[in-house]
Amino acid sequence: MAKAKITFEDINQTVNVPAGTRVIEVSEKVGAGLIYGCREGDCGTCMMEVTEGWNNLTEPSVLEEKVLKENMAGRHNRLACQAQILGDCKVKPA
């Protein structure tokens, strides 16, 4: 299975994950400083900043775009409970 590396910059931890894994599944296991509310792309609590590898995450859905907008997201923000890891990337809490 294809693998990808995601780095959580706040705790400087890199994890080698199977492609398609959601960021939330990893961040919770390693204790990164991302917080979650609804866990289903609705509340915007889990907003993170993608510092590298923006294109190595799955495209945001229409719903995610909407929630990002409602939460006044910046250009490099994504929802950690939605974004799936396809290739190497680095993230930190927004």
Partner: peptide, 11 residues
């Protein structure tokens, strides 16, 4: 760095 950890080790 504690290096790279494998997802399967923590999953």
């Amino acid at each position: 760095g504690s290096g790279v950890i494998e997802f399967s080790d923590i999953h």
